[in-house]
Amino acid sequence: MVSLSPQNLPSADLTTDQLERGTSLWRDAWHRLRRNRLAVFGGTVVIVFSLTCVLAPWIFHLSYQDQNLDLGAVAPNAQHWLGTDTLGRDLLARILYGGRISLMVGLVASLVALVIGVSYGAIAGYVGGTLDSVMMRIVDIMYALPFTIFVILLMVFLKDPMQAVDAWLGRFSIFGFHAFEGMQGVGKILLLFAAIGAVEWLTMARIVRGQILSIKKMEYIEAARSMGLGTPRIIFRHMVPNVLGPVIVYTSLTIPAVMLLESFLSFLGLGVDAPMSSLGTLIKDGSEKMEEFWWLLVFPGGAFSLTLFSLNFLGDGLRDALDVRASKD
């Protein structure tokens, strides 16, 4: 069946061939994405780096926390490929373990922000009227509330649930196998997502609302409405896919912001506990020692930049791929 995707509706110039193959927005996009070499490259780098980080404990022999105080900070060498930090810990191991945290925080928290922001903005923009007013004033309020205080309060009041989560995970076992043993601080990470998600969706919501308003009066939406489609269907099936471009671009900007925000939150005590680290905190520490121990800034910063560049290439590719009109030029 031909899916009633917004692109199909107004376009008289769709070839019958496409119609017969039942091309959906997503399949089309996937085809175009695969042809975009930069995007493929970006996607590959992201996947490879993520896999390396996730599999670090099994594929890399050095630990992120084993110290060698007498060694101290040494430049890259045969034994420590990226050098060591001031406590003599292997930097590569710290980057890989830090990458796990940063990628997880960056992706999950951005996703949270994305889902909330897009739905919220789309509903406000489409429904309009009083509901829009109220929803957008709530966004204004959320913007203005002091974030630092919000985070501290979150930690104070959710401390017990956090510890309950950790305790439950510690006890959790499948066939006598304690899958999450020693995973202290999972509760804190969940809270971290909540804290970041709570602020990052605001601008997303405003952007989506602006876009939705701009296409609300377009012919194909009117057409969908006249066909008697339900509001949720119109919003999520026909309007949201059409504003995905800015959404993707803004999401690719949210990810680095979130990763750096994490290092501020870890200052407030929210995030991973030392000696575990994240890319953000590694960069922060490295930036204070850049003249003496350049590798402590350059390599974590390099890993951070590589990830972001790749994510952005992928994001641009996705944006282009989802932009049906562009493909017709």
Binding site: V249, Y250, R319
Partner: peptide, 9 residues
């Protein structure tokens, strides 16, 4: 970044 994305749209 946002200008590029918006303009392309």
């Amino acid at each position: 970044r946002l200008t590029r994305g918006g303009m392309l749209e």
